[in-house]
Design a protein around this nucleic acid. Structure first.
Lengths: 218, 218
DNA sequence: TGATGTGAAGCGGTTCACAGCG
DNA sequence: CGCTGTGAACCGCTTCACATCA
């Protein structure tokens, strides 16, 4: 065993760990006790070898000949991913996407609480939406600092995204989920992940166009 | 030169092409004429060598000593990605996320028209939301076939996602963007991309937890 | 001269195959 | 015997370095 220190974990591994966890939680609901790397792979769209390799980067959690204990592995993964606690999140931009996120219960279910929302439109600020106070954009730094918020979600128009990111970082946020369709510059110490719906659709467009695939509409 | 046939293009390359395109469109708005691989890289969060390699997979589009013509490269990328046309999209599930997507103008701006929406809740069906007709779920196959829709978006609860996917595929859809937090099984000929907001946040949680990073809140 | 296009090297993630152990 | 854990092989993406050409 040699998995103590900060070995480099790839982004793809981390993403798969999250997928395993999501699946394990489903198995827990179903009351399943044990699960093999083969079953895990099937449910998560990967291979048994990949599952075992991913897990082996962190330790030995299975029982040879039997598989993994669902509940134990679930807790282990929660630990690895840093989900043994709840995270406070700041949401900036309460437009279409922002308000959808405010009402999206899956976030809280999985440990992420939107602690404060912000918008530059006075018509939206001052009220409580889906149980979350909406502050004017000017108060971002103050409120984020005060509430010790560590994660930010940007759901503003692309023009404002960089400015907002700078403010979030300045206020102490360590990672940002960006829904604005632009790349954002942050210091190395901060992580940004951009989710661009149209960009994903463009990827699908490429598959259908250039594809080895011929959609058979009989 | 050797970029005629169906060489294998990696998912990461396709994603970057989309990012380049997004950036080029911004440069077009700014009236920029030329752009170098270095500038492209800066604006897209990658390296000049990567930019040139990505583009070289499809041809030679630059002028040595000068760079790339913004407008020309933009059109080239649109062609490669299959964006020289508009795509009709079916949206299934008009809850929080679904209705946000209905009103999200960036999709139409980038070539994706939601041609029909579906929901199983009778309270939502029959009306027109954001200019899109909302049909009862039972009519999915019929309407998707009739309108020759090729792309599907799933924004239902996770329990219904697989069933909906099967119906979409059965109705002739060739690719699916899935917002339900579950992996989905489809025939090999169909592409699925899953966008799970909480899963992305979990990735950020890992970075902050296990990170080489120490968020300095002074 | 300056930036592209690209073979070749480098590197890291994935797959394989099997030893190890319940 | 079955499934995990893992070194080694493999493969493909990224990076490098430079020939090439406007």
């Amino acid at each position: 065993m040699s998995h103590s220190g900060q070995r480099r974990i790839s982004e793809s591994t981390v993403r798969r760990l999250s997928v395993y966890l999501r699946f394990l939680r489903e198995l827990t609901r179903q009351g399943r006790e044990l699960v093999s790397s083969r079953q895990l792979a099937r449910g998560c769209g990967t291979t048994p070898a990949q599952v075992r390799k991913d897990l082996s980067l962190f330790g030995s959690f299975g029982k040879r000949g039997r598989g993994y204990t669902v509940d134990e592995l679930r807790r282990t993964l929660e630990g690895i991913l840093g989900l043994g606690r709840r995270w406070r999140v700041a949401l900036v931009g309460v437009g279409k996407i922002g308000s959808a996120l405010l009402g999206y219960q899956d976030l809280a279910r999985r440990g992420f609480d939107i602690a404060a929302a912000f918008d530059s439109d006075p018509a939206k600020t001052g009220q409580v939406m889906s149980g979350v106070q909406v502050y004017p954009a000017e108060r971002l730094t103050e409120v984020v600092r005060m509430q010790q918020i560590e994660l930010g979600i940007i759901a503003t128009p692309p023009e404002s995204a960089q400015t907002v990111a700078d403010e979030l970082v300045g206020a102490g946020v360590g990672a940002i989920l960006n829904f604005a369709p632009v790349e954002i510059d942050v210091p190395e110490s901060v992580t940004v992940r951009t989710m661009d719906v149209a960009l994903e659709l463009e990827g699908l467009s490429f598959m259908l166009t250039s594809g080895d695939r011929m959609p058979s509409r009989e």
